[in-house]
Amino acid sequence: MSWGPLALSLQVALAATALATALGVVLAGVLARARFPGSDLLDALVTAPLVLPPTVLGYALLQVVGRESVLGRAWESLTGSSLVFSRSAAVLAATVAALPLVVRSARAAMEAVDPALLGAAATLGASPPRVFLTVTLPLSRAGVLAGVTLGFARALGEFGVTLMLAGNIPGLTQTGALAIYDAVQANRDAEALGLAAVMAAVGVAAVYVGTKLGRRRVHGA
């Protein structure tokens, strides 16, 4: 059994988790507090990857970042190569898949923070960004971490969107999930079993840890 696809899965999932966390925490903060025109639509867009068929999502992303699109061209002129069918595309696919899990968990935790604490911080002279960083985020830490862990597990298992956007190129974009598919197709049962067992173990462990974190209360709260 080759460890290459698993290592690639790990690498892609870690990068995607970092991106989804940075973006997801900010989005959750905005959605948790602000009511503005289009906030429900933004919520729906962020959540959509949880329910859309991966093919639909992959197709949509191809339209947005494909070689003929504005973003795709911008990427190509910046980096000198196409975004689609690259490792970056695999990271993008996994990020989009992980994002809703980060946002939903973080947002629920942030909404549970007592508004009086936010009001107290504001009257003590804290600007909205400082209130977010020093009150909202520390008090919703457990929920944010739970979302990040679940998002990591989701990124690790990403299959459909990756296939559409990044392809199934051994050594470049063939992650563990894709390698299992290939191994089954080619009757390499032992390899499929090995890959599947490792990925299942890592995934279950991540979900277990994430769920534990989600239940934990912040000390003193």
Partner: peptide, 15 residues
């Protein structure tokens, strides 16, 4: 505003 407000339930930061 420099308006200090003491809330009924105090709203001390628990962390």
């Amino acid at each position: 505003r420099r308006m200090a407000l003491v809330f009924q339930h105090l709203a001390l930061f628990p962390h």
